[in-house]
Nucleic acid binder design. Structure first.
Length: 931
RNA sequence: GCGGAUGUGGUGAAAUUGGUAGACACGCCAGACUUAGGAUCUGGUGCCGAGAGGUGUGCGGGUUCGAGUCCCUCCAUCCGCACCA
């Protein structure tokens, strides 16, 4: 029987589905292992060969762990809320749920063809009410929680109420961590608190909730009609669609992720992720240490608080700059400067993010006419407004030290402001030409800081600032609170209703708050979100619901927990389940989620941990980011002005333009001219200038896979042509998992031929099964155990590509040995089954085993004895260059080896009569002779 | 500008701790076979050279008996962040 992969794969797919081979339950007799893929958004385009790359790797690892005796959880689901389905709905009127359903069916079909060992009974879909009930429930927990800076964890809002009832806010160092400016709470006593109206109490509490409604600058995208989180804005335009984004002061639901900034940073030290992702998260969190200093405004009760990382340069301050949006700008500007300042602020506000970013080199600003008092010298310091100061970072105000900050320097030069040097540079430097920004040198002109090093001066300055009450040491984070509301239809409704304009959380028994039906998926005429179109949609038939929905990352921030207990109707996850499975051991997915999903999931996990709902505070212990697979585009060359195409090698003789041609019409760079003619009516009568052999050769280029480049390779076609096992192995064989690599179908034959060669090991020349029951030869045992060792090592370090070549070497050797030994082949096939499960199942049965039991067989154990050698082919080097080899017994001592080697004819040739200066012998490795 | 990663044949790549550079494949060359199959088998294939041999892991230096691997300088490519005080 020939290797009929279509029949084989079809049979085993059915077998696994019918027998639920990969269904898994908690089993305390086995250690657990949780292997997770980033679940896909089911888009209308379906999967291309790049998508399953990570799934194949995780599936191999999951199967490997099963063979090692672990109880492996390996689930799959869909991140099924999202923009494309909604936009399709706007265009066609088709309900997004329907589109989503269809896309999921297609995805499932594609995934099934590749033979993954998912436990499909655990599938989750973020858009199903059974799932989002619990997304809403977690939102409500966040709404009902605050971050206690004293205990450094999230607590129930009740503990805050208890504090207020007991002692009010006075005497308690309570801060609102808005992430922007720390404001002291309006002081009140316990008695006052108790006397406040319910509305007033709730307003105060809103300042503390982890999910809160607050006014802040948000990214508003008018083209999409919604706000966006920072990670959804790339280079000043929306990540999806590339629409312009502006900053707008709006009341929005937000998540107080900033409260967790330090723990999100610290946690990175405890998880096994790539350095680049960890670094990206560190950048995103952007911790910087320094001080906040208050400068009191002359003639006002106000004071300006600045944040600086260089308190050592405080004596070098020559002006203070406010961001145009800073709330004090309006209040302190003097009458004579009002017009100028207001028009500057107006102009700055109307500039989009993108314009502002594109224009970083233009210096602009305006004097307010106001002055502040320098806290130490009491000198008058002018206050300016400048758009190089960002309202969202630090306090939105800076103390400008032109001598030691590049931007301050440029600003001062541009406006002719004074400049005072306070650090003596440690190397040659002209302070007139550029700022000295290094943290090196000696402090001068600075009273009590004089003669200190920068490092010591920073410490001393903070000390003095604090003891004089001018400010304090402060850690600042770049991280902003995450905007959580979206003015869209296809997302989880935020479980909030309004009574007397105050938001209330919906009671748990009333969840889920399901998406209402609407007539259109567009905003209303008055600019309200689509949910405003729902008729009779009121809480208890009288209270308005919140009309925003949750962002895409809500459902994906906790889905890994729902897999543990997907059908639980009473809890988001059962206590016993989460205690058994705990967090994800291995997470595989793309690195594009570094500052989005991966940060939010960590945040929610830490929150759930604090609230005692789970027992770990990092979701993904180890993560591997698979690289992108690039497409290989093919080109034909159209002679300009003619309907004539010229072959690749002749194209330079003409003036021609390359045109993308569908790769399905190209085989090994050779164009199928007939297919091309039929592609487009214009090409029907085209002329072709071919190579000498009459073929038309296409050019090619490696670029991102996309429909418009006609270079998309779908897994379905390849499964049809070569089988799933070949596709799985080939995707792994392509190169290291984490690397970006070009897709090239040419090499797939090599892997396919390997599987055929393997098949032949089990069959005789008449294609009949032929397996020997005799004892294996020493040689075959050596081949086998060499492979066991390499396979184990390679899988343990996720080197899937070298794993494939190990199998090739093994099968090549066994073929040479004409080995059809049952024992050898059995162990080989167990090792192969994670990579090529279908053929392995088939051959397993041919070896006389029970169908389906290979997935729970025991992974072969390496026995060193079979590799024992009595001699070794020593490479002999002269001055580090390998010259010849000599086979010597491994029992020889270094001295004996030296004698043996030196008396050889080959040696005397290279010694040229000289005596060796030195002979290095590493037993079992190398001989090096220094002449 | 800051940070991260990567540079090895015609191509994808391998070399886990410093120890035979290019495993395994693709492609190509030569040959065999034939039930003409994206089949199988044999041999060859880094570069220069007829050969002996020389040379070779982005460039230049260093450490070492020995460097793709460690250290320093530089170059190139990709990714992330960026007026962040």
């Amino acid at each position: 029987m020939e290797y009929d992969f279509r029949a084989i794969e079809n049979n085993w797919r059915k077998f696994w589905a019918a027998n639920k081979t990969f269904k898994v339950t908690e089993d305390t007799s086995k250690p657990k292992y949780y292997v997770l893929d980033m679940f896909p958004y089911p888009s209308g385009a379906g999967l291309h060969v790049g998508h399953p790359l990570g799934y194949i790797a995780s599936d191999i690892y999951a199967r490997y762990k099963r063979l090692q005796g672990y109880n492996v959880l390996h689930p799959m689901g869909y991140d099924s809320f999202g923009l494309p389905a909604e936009q399709y709905a706007i265009q066609t009127g088709q309900h997004p749920a329907l589109t989503t359903e269809e896309n999921i069916a297609r995805y499932r079909d594609q995934l099934d063809k590749i033979g993954f060992s998912f436990d499909w009974d655990r599938e989750v879909r973020t858009s199903s009410p059974e799932y989002y009930k619990w997304t809403q429930w977690i939102f409500k927990q966040l709404f009902d929680s605050w971050y206690n800076p004293k205990t450094n964890k999230a607590e129930s809002i009740d503990t805050l109420i208890a504090i207020f009832e007991f002692q009010g806010s006075s005497g308690v160092e309570l801060v609102i961590l808005t992430g922007d400016i720390e404001k002291d709470v309006m002081p009140f006593s316990a008695e006052e608190w108790k006397a406040f109206s319910e509305k007033k109490k709730l307003e105060i509490l809103m300042n503390f909730r982890l999910a809160y409604l607050g006014e802040s600058y948000v990214n508003w995208c008018s083209a999409l009609g919604t706000v966006l989180a920072n990670d959804e804005v790339v280079n000043g335009v929306s990540e999806r669609g590339g629409h312009p984004v502006e900053r707008k002061l709006m009341k929005q639901w937000s998540m107080r992720i900033t409260a967790f900034a330090q723990r999100l940073l610290d946690g990175l030290g405890t998880i096994d992720w790539s350095e680049s992702i960890k670094e990206t998260q560190r950048n995103w969190i952007g911790r910087s240490e320094g001080a906040s200093i208050r400068f009191s405004v002359l003639g006002h009760e106000h004071s300006i608080e600045v944040f600086t990382t260089r308190p050592d340069t405080v004596f070098g301050v020559s002006f203070v700059t406010l961001a145009p949006e800073h709330e004090l700008v309006e209040k302190i500007t003097t009458e004579s400067h009002k017009n100028e300042v207001l028009s500057y602020v107006e102009k700055a506000k109307n500039r989009s993010e993108r314009e502002r970013q594109a224009d970083v080199n233009t210096i602009s600003g305006v004097f307010t006419g106001a002055y502040v008092k320098h806290p130490f010298t009491n000198e008058k310091v002018p206050v300016w407004v400048g758009d190089y100061v960002l309202v969202g970072y630090g306090t939105g105000a800076v103390m400008a030290v032109p001598a030691h900050d590049e931007r301050d320097f440029k600003f001062a030069k541009h406006f002719g402001l004074s400049c005072k040097q306070v650090i003596l540079p440690s190397t040659e430097h002209n302070i007139q030409e550029a700022a000295w920004t290094e943290k090196e040198g000696k402090i001068i002109n600075s009273d009590f800081l004089n003669d200190l090093t920068v490092k010591d001066a920073i410490r001393k300055a903070i000390e003095q600032i604090t003891s004089n009450g001018f400010g304090k040491g402060r850690v600042n984070y770049r991280l902003r609170d995450a905007v959580f509301g979206r003015q869209r239809y296809w997302g989880e409704p935020i479980p909030i209703y309004y009574k007397d304009e105050v938001p209330y959380g919906i009671k748990e028994v009333d969840l889920p708050l399901t998406l209402p039906e609407v007539d259109k998926y567009l905003p209303t005429e008055d600019g309200e979100p689509p949910l405003a179109r729902a008729s009779n949609w009121k809480h208890e038939n009288q209270f308005e619901y919140e009309l925003s929905t949750m962002p895409g990352w809500a459902g994906s921030s906790w889905y890994f927990l729902r897999y543990l207990d997907p059908k639980n109707e009473n809890e988001f996850v059962g206590r016993d389940k989460v205690e058994y499975w705990k967090n994800v051991d291995l997470y595989i997915g793309g690195s594009e989620h570094a500052t989005g999903h991966l940060l939010y999931a960590r945040f929610w996990t830490k929150f759930l941990f604090d609230r005692g709902l789970i027992s770990f505070d990092e979701p993904f212990q180890k993560m591997i980011n698979q690289g992108m697979i690039l497409g290989r585009s093919s080109f034909v060359y159209l002679v300009i002005g003619e309907n004539k195409f010229v072959s690749y090698s002749l194209k330079d003789n003409f003036i021609c333009a390359p045109i993308h041609v569908d790769i399905s019409m190209v085989d090994n760079d050779k164009l199928n001219i007939e297919a091309f003619r039929n592609w487009r009516p214009d090409y029907k009568d085209a002329e072709f200038i071919c190579e000498e052999d009459g073929s038309y050769i296409c050019g090619n280029e490696v670029e991102k896979m996309s429909k418009s480049k006609y270079n998309v390779q779908t897994p379905d076609e390849l499964v049809e042509k070569f089988g799933a096992d070949t596709l799985r192995m080939y995707e792994m064989f392509l190169g290291p998992l984490e690397q970006t690599k070009p897709w090239d179908t040419k090499g797939i034959n090599g892997v396919h031929n390997f599987l055929r060669k393997l098949w032949r090991l089990f069959h005789d020349s008449e294609s009949k099964v032929s397996i020997s029951n005799e004892a294996p030869t020493k040689e075959s045992l050596k081949t086998l155990h060499k492979t066991i060792k390499k396979m184990t090592d390679d899988l343990d370090r996720f080197s899937f590509n070298t794993g494939v070549s190990n199998f090739m070497i093994c099968v090549n050797e066994l073929t040479e040995q004409k080995c059809n030994n049952k024992q050898i082949l059995t162990e080989l096939i167990i090792m192969l089954s994670p990579y090529a499960p279908h053929i392995s199942e088939e051959l397993w049965v041919k070896l006389g085993k029970q169908p389906g039991t290979i997935s729970t067989a025991q992974f072969p154990l390496f026995n060193e004895e079979h590799l024992a050698e009595s001699s070794f082919d020593y490479p002999v080097s002269f001055n580090g260059k390998m010259r010849f080899k000599v086979n010597l017994s491994l029992s020889l001592s270094p001295k004996e080896i030296e004698v043996e080697v030196l008396k050889m004819d080959e040696s005397s040739k290279w010694l040229e009569g000289k005596t060796p200066k030195k002979v290095i012998i590493v037993p079992g490795k190398i001989v090096n002779i220094v002449v």
